[in-house]
Nucleic acid binder design. Sequence first.
DNA 1: GTCTATAGGGAGATAGAC
DNA 2: GTCTATCTCCCTATAGAC
Lengths: 198, 198
Amino acid sequence: MSTSPAKATKEPRSRPSGGARQRVLDAALDLFAENGVSGTSLQMIADHIGVTKAAVYHQFPSKDEIVLAVLAPGMETLQRSVEEAERLDTPEARRASMLAALVDLVVSHRRIAAILNADPAASRLARSHAALDVAPRIRELMVGTDPDIRSDVAGAMVGGALMMVGLAPELERYDDEELSRHLLELAQDLLSRHAGEA
Amino acid sequence: MSTSPAKATKEPRSRPSGGARQRVLDAALDLFAENGVSGTSLQMIADHIGVTKAAVYHQFPSKDEIVLAVLAPGMETLQRSVEEAERLDTPEARRASMLAALVDLVVSHRRIAAILNADPAASRLARSHAALDVAPRIRELMVGTDPDIRSDVAGAMVGGALMMVGLAPELERYDDEELSRHLLELAQDLLSRHAGEA
DNA sequence: GTCTATAGGGAGATAGAC
DNA sequence: GTCTATCTCCCTATAGAC
């Protein structure tokens, strides 16, 4: 996995920080988080990194592809986490695994998770691109099949809390480790006390 | 306050359901909730009610005014609730009052609350229009001044849960009364157990 | 990898007839 | 209250030079 000197066929040669492509993605993430996907134009992205629109189009064939590339790290991690959790035997283990993965995901990719959850354009694009919509599978992992209202509310509460990590300015100053710990504890507490009897 | 027959100077005459203006607002709320504010054009609003853009512009001078008019019921209620809560004497009473008002607001105006919280264009417009940004005042009412990380996470969790009422499809089927009850109980439980020692 | 230039369309917004 | 017609601007996207 390290930077082997020879035979670096796919890796960007000489690693200039990932290059222009990554600069586009960084700028896009900033702007999507601040203005939403629909509220962000290619001109804004180009201006943000000091080039023209045409230079951006040299890296990506369309705006949709930029959006998908921005969301990709989060989406792939999410999909893997769901599949992993679904392989476990007991409902308790499935929920614990999914919850831990979700907390880790939203903390390490705060803005991506917020965009994916809260931006209608991003959600639609992600759903149309991914093989299967993960939202109902996550819901089942968290509150089981046919949950009662209390489980649904508790589940939504946890989901909302996870979304807020990328939306609430007052959480920005906390580092990943301590934020994860408190989030996980509170979510576990809430779910075990209010979504266990389903 | 009732529909006095004579001297109805300001009320719409003969009350044709509120008329064209209200139909615009209804369509706009539907579309904003589904596509976001930036993802909704005046053409989409006009098409949704079967008229032309010019007819929409006869009711509102600009798109911003439509957005503000859609959000107005929620914003006014919110502002009043904050001021009411701030007048109370003890921190406990302030938090209980604010929480009850928030639950009532997000349940009775589910989609408005979701748009106001999650849509960057809507939030920005609301902040620029309202006299004072209510978000920090609500935060102080809920978790006090200078909260620790656990209080902040608990507060964000409650805030996220309230936002989810208008975003999570699985909560749509529950009626206002029972949803309010469970939301209030869970939020009170969470805050009293994890945001009390600040 | 970045540029200039431009095509083609949809955006917000206005004028004026009915 | 709604229409047709139009303005201007900015959007996504493409072509081709350097």
